[in-house]
Design a protein around this nucleic acid. Structure first.
Lengths: 182, 182
DNA sequence: GCATTGCACTAATGAAGGTGGAGTGCATCA
DNA sequence: TGATGCACTCCACCTTCATTAGTGCAATGC
């Protein structure tokens, strides 16, 4: 449908001409909507190219806040973020294209980081709710920052070598960080 | 002596005029050395203002690589970084001035981050040596990135509220991250 | 003999100005 | 009610220029 068409057009144009080589008017023409309408589907140019970011699954968040799915915080963070990262159901060649685009322009890399930063902040709030007084604001901040930095590690690894999925790299980075705190 | 004089002059000038409002020639005149000699003491303008970064203590690094001081990785990382952050022996009012300068100019904040990034990379190498095959490159990268992000949390907290030392904030952030992996 | 310094050079940065296009609000239309 | 046209603001990027940061090298002085 329209959002997918927009993404495909934006990616085609970005690969051909680079991020600065096409306008949102070009994308709109390609996708068959007006430029104004385009912004009803994507929040900006970078998201047009990257595709609409997935929304966190409300039921998983409810479960997480209630202490699930396993009861162990680390495992539950892992499961929740892993599911989020896997929720973007792209074919391998689409992931490969996203990877190439991210590698080619630091602004896209930064946008990925920033999109995930929102998720990490959300998760920190959820941790505060779930864990109560055990987590003060500094701890919540540390948790969010660490989660985000592990995403960065995973993203860098994915861009460098896409034979492993972003979610799997995140899991590995998470385990690596856990080993630091053994 | 000379390095301390350079730092004091650079800080005076930075507080009066902002980072762009004085030249290295001004600092040199104030400190009583030539501009050329100034660079024998500091690597650049930002380090003139922040003071020369401490060097990691070689004996502590040797101890760390050998599996010390306690044998538990998390405790040893904490102890080693804590000692490093405490090794800059400034009076409270000097720390307060550094804090004000960092808060006033993002470039100084960034320089602090980058100075610590070198330490974090060093530590990751030391972890690789100490822990051997248990830590592959991705794990080492995750460890370094997490350590650096916890420094960022500590630095932000210190700039916002300097009633606690940078080292103590780092310890608290480290414990907060450890709680994430419980 | 080594640290300081002067000098000349390159590289980097900030300021200022301009521009195209991103992003947004609002009214109209189908 | 969603799509669209239109007008507007804001912003990122580019260019130009001047200043200064940073650096290498040779000379000097203690």
């Amino acid at each position: 449908m329209t959002a997918a068409r927009i993404t495909r057009c934006a990616q085609d144009l970005a690969e051909e001409r680079g991020l600065d080589g096409f306008t949102m008017h070009d994308v709109a023409d390609c996708a068959g909507v007006s430029r104004r309408t385009l912004f009803n589907y994507v929040s900006g140019k970078l998201d047009a190219v990257l595709g609409v970011p997935p929304a966190p699954d409300p039921s998983r968040l409810i479960e997480f806040r209630a202490g699930g799915p396993t009861g162990r915080l680390a495992d539950d963070v892992k499961a929740t973020i892993g599911a989020f990262l896997d929720s973007k159901d792209l074919a391998p060649e689409d992931w490969e294209r996203v990877r190439r685009l991210i590698a080619a322009d630091a602004r896209l890399h930064k946008a990925m980081h920033e999109n995930f930063a929102k998720v990490a902040a959300f998760l920190a709030d959820a941790i505060l709710e779930r864990e109560g007084a055990r987590f003060d604001p500094l701890r919540a901040r540390a948790a969010a920052t660490v989660t985000l930095s592990l995403f960065d590690v995973a993203l860098d690894a994915f861009v460098a070598d896409p034979s492993t999925s972003l979610a799997a790299y995140f899991m590995a980075a998470f385990d690596g960080a856990a080993a630091l705190f053994d």
